[in-house]
């Protein structure tokens, strides 16, 4: 039996989908959101506002997806 590092497993699934279906979204953005959600499972409001600001930061910096 192999032991798995399961947050890695979770991140790996996100990465799998991102790289195959939505490569226009950067990997770090997804990881950042996932980590914030992981760290704030007991604080839903904080998790939500952090997620919002992570997205807003990126979107405002880059102007969203290239048309």
């Amino acid at each position: 039996m192999t032991t798995r590092q399961s947050l890695n497993e979770l991140l790996a699934v996100l990465e799998e989908i991102r790289s195959n279906d939505y490569p226009d979204v950067p990997k770090e953005l997804i990881e950042k959101i996932a980590m914030s959600q992981y760290d704030n499972q007991d604080a839903r409001n904080k998790a939500r506002s952090e997620t919002m600001s992570i997205l807003a930061d990126y979107v405002n910096r880059t102007g969203g997806l290239e048309a």
Binding site: L14, D21, D24, V25, L55, G64, L65
Partner: peptide
Amino acid sequence: LCEHVFRI
């Protein structure tokens, strides 16, 4: 962009 993140 946000929609793609959502779908992911």
